[in-house]
Design a protein around this nucleic acid. Structure first.
Lengths: 237, 237
DNA sequence: GAGTGGTCTAGACCACAAG
DNA sequence: TTGTGGTCTAGACCACTCG
């Protein structure tokens, strides 16, 4: 596995910033200077710096230079498609995933409509509970078209389905839509989660599209109200 | 006013796609072909195509080419910085904004910290309630550094502060961070909103930064649980 | 005027897809 | 094998900031 030069430079700069080589509001070396240091061309440095900028590590200012931001700590990917495993890594609490259901089903009418599936299409259904600090906080229900994902095991589900799909199967995931609202808790929520008497949950619906613009995955994530937290970092065009 | 070459090409391609010169799933001419047509270099064409891709107009595929996506469906602005006025326009219900407070204050310690303000800085405080279908649903509290916004009137606040700042004052807004959680309702929430006995609200905290990386606006938006809704659209890198 | 980031060029080599 | 998009280079000119 060989990493692109501009990605290698990006990752090197990220780790240097995180290690505190430059503090917030410090100026980065100029693009010409960096090109010399990394023995590369300025355009390649610029690709790395643009990545840093898109991920909130630096702010570029024409005629002045690039300064390091103190928002670099929000290192989760710019909004959308955030997986539980990524979130878990940023938390101190011990986390655990319990797989309650894993199998292939025939989609009913509503699900068919949401996945734009034919009636003969088969669909993976996965129900998982996310435990944080010993409490059952999140109920995740995932639905995939089986033609896109032939194999899915309990082990994969306990780790990160999203990571598996991205790195192992190289599915051409293109974009995602997220919808959030607060809904009445269902019987299922009460069974699987420690709701402490709450009668509502935060519902996050996630639609993942492949790059031919067909819907491939539908996920419903149901969170206990008091533990729900969502952060979004948006850069202006 | 002179437009960059790659921006001009981007806008030309957008209008051609919108006029139907290529339909959904058609292949765009190759980068080399486009470079010839526009009498420019391939790297400049690539900057234009990357913009098209980021804005959801095309999907690039290595070794194959770029296909045009179904434009009509995914044309809403990429997540973040969505104003109430925009949201309101997509709703059927009649909406109204009531300004409860509008003035300049001396920030207390907590607010100073959040705005990174000096103790002598003055701060605009605006408290507004958003009424939808006759019910008071959202409580908005905005804080701006006065040095950035000399004038703010009741009329501006009843329309859209965000639009005013963007179009009239041309502030160099760079990026925004959004945090969402569910909090206990305060006495203020109960006074200003029709909570129907609810003891919690969805709290959206919005931090808006200028492009010198200084925080310029802090907004706290407090929503009734049952009316809260948030949509986010994220394109993969 | 010196230094910065933003744009643009003309070429090169690569990995990938498809006939 | 041919054509595609992805990366990389070494140079150029520009607009901007600041002393």
């Amino acid at each position: 596995m060989h990493e692109n030069k501009y990605l290698a430079i990006y990752h090197d700069l990220v780790s240097r910033i995180r290690r505190g080589e430059w503090k917030a509001y410090d100026k980065l070396p100029s693009e010409n200077e960096l090109a010399v240091r990394y023995r590369t061309s300025r355009e390649t440095i610029r690709k790395a710096l643009n990545l840093l900028s898109e991920h909130g590590y630096i702010q570029k200012m024409k005629g002045k230079g690039s300064i390091v931001l103190d928002v670099g700590k929000y290192d989760f990917p710019v909004s959308g498609l955030v997986s539980f495993k990524e979130l878990a890594q940023t938390m101190k609490q011990p986390v655990r995933t319990i797989v309650h259901e894993l199998g292939v089903i025939k989609p009913d009418a509503e699900l068919r409509q949401q996945l734009r599936a034919a009636s003969k299409d088969e669909v993976w259904k996965v129900v998982r509970v996310r435990e944080i600090g010993g409490e059952r906080i999140i109920l995740d229900k995932d639905f995939f078209l089986k033609k896109h994902v032939p194999l899915l095991t309990k082990e994969i589900c306990e780790d990160s389905i999203y990571e598996y799909l991205e790195t192992k199967r190289h599915l051409p995931i293109s974009f995602a839509k997220k919808e959030m609202s607060v809904d009445e808790a269902t019987e299922e929520d009460r069974r699987y989660l420690d709701l402490n008497g709450d009668d509502r949950v935060v519902v996050v619906k996630n639609y993942v599209y492949l790059n031919d613009a067909t819907l491939f995955q539908y996920t419903e994530s149901r969170h206990r109200l008091d533990k729900f937290r969502f952060v979004d970092f948006a850069r202006r065009k």
